[in-house]
Design a protein around this nucleic acid. Sequence first.
DNA 1: CGATAGTTTGAACTGACTCAAAACCCGTGG
DNA 2: CCACGGGTTTTGAGTCAGTTCAAACTATCG
Lengths: 243, 243
Amino acid sequence: MQIAHSALTQKLSAFVVLSDTDLDTLARFHRRRRSFAAGHSLIHEGQNHKSAFILAEGWACSYKMLPDGERQIVGIQIAGDFLGLRSILFRTSDHSLEAVTRIEASEVLASDILDSFAQAPRLATAVLWAASRDEAMVVEHLVNLGRRSAEMRMAHFLLELRARLKLVGIGDASGFDCPLTQYHLADILGLSAVHVNRVLRHLREDGLVTFQKGRVMFHDIAALGTLAGFDPDYLDQDGPLLR
Amino acid sequence: MQIAHSALTQKLSAFVVLSDTDLDTLARFHRRRRSFAAGHSLIHEGQNHKSAFILAEGWACSYKMLPDGERQIVGIQIAGDFLGLRSILFRTSDHSLEAVTRIEASEVLASDILDSFAQAPRLATAVLWAASRDEAMVVEHLVNLGRRSAEMRMAHFLLELRARLKLVGIGDASGFDCPLTQYHLADILGLSAVHVNRVLRHLREDGLVTFQKGRVMFHDIAALGTLAGFDPDYLDQDGPLLR
DNA sequence: CGATAGTTTGAACTGACTCAAAACCCGTGG
DNA sequence: CCACGGGTTTTGAGTCAGTTCAAACTATCG
């Protein structure tokens, strides 16, 4: 029941309508449920991992550390997202991954996924779509870091998060609850924590967004979108396109 | 003959040893050979594309434009790389793509690739590996923009290029020919063209690399690697790992 | 109620930018 | 063979967005 309507199912439905076979195969991904405490480290860069996870509940982040101790967060994962999918075919994982909040996740083996390509090709395509979408988010993130100002980055990030959370039924028109600290935001946006604070104050004073006490509240989404140059097309999530 | 030893084959062989069936299926990817002039635009962001390309010869780059006319280059593609693979499942492409030099490329349809999953699962895994590797490069690029200084970015980028070119048999121990202008480098590294020039001068004066007259020459790879914090593991290309 | 994690603010500094102008390089056509 | 012109590289001077360092303030939780 709750499996059939898992966050992943909900997300994939933005791409195709899944058949019963698809749903069955998908359900098989959800054996091996695990739960991890906030701050727990699931994947270590440089180690070999034959499995990935599907996040069912809570927030996680993937990141890379630099020799000088700096950290760059590559992406934030929410319910319905894959964790560590990229490097199951690699000798060693190219990134680390830790739980931001307490999380619930299902472990999936490389073979589970590869086998599904033969059994449920439609589902397989949907999984590839999800992976492509993850990559599109990384790409947009890269553009953020390369060519946008601190304020634009913040605005863009918050709007993306809003759209992603909406797709899996989290948050409402006014905003969403967000467990990220300003240190997280700094490591996501390639800024210092101090500057993150100033940027948030600025956006708040301009009546665009408020991020306080673990809640993000939007006051002028249109203006925020213009500021950020946010065009949600790269999320490719405008209703299911049957084919 | 030259098809059997295409750059793509050479690259995929860093991941698995391909069977004859694999090679046959792969050869089928190489019908529909096209050639495009330098500067030609192959893919436009926002347009629908049912096909991708495999680059056989020359250099290309994928990028995104911002509303204010700024450009961020997402990646440079060389022989053996896929062009536009990420968005064949999307409604609209999330990026644009243009030829840096005159290029030769084979057009592949979404169906060619998806069908191959059933026919040649081993090849399919290899293609997925290549896609994962592309994503890993974007991720490393993101870390570059987020947390490294201009000099480190440049050093890192040149070392990555060196490793990638070596895998497909381009360049030698001393360096490689490179058709990129300082404007390209600026749009790749999230810098201004003026600053790119200063950075290159600095690296040259320190006896690390020289980039002049379309040729990159390395003088101290070890020192450059240390400066950049370059660890090639994310390229996952250390010899074929059979399985 | 003390400790620890996170937020907020100020002041001084700096890496990278912008603007501006030369110099160079190379292919083209007269 | 030389002059022209567009693209590219190089250098200088001044500016600014974002940093670092330092400190105070605010939660929250055992």
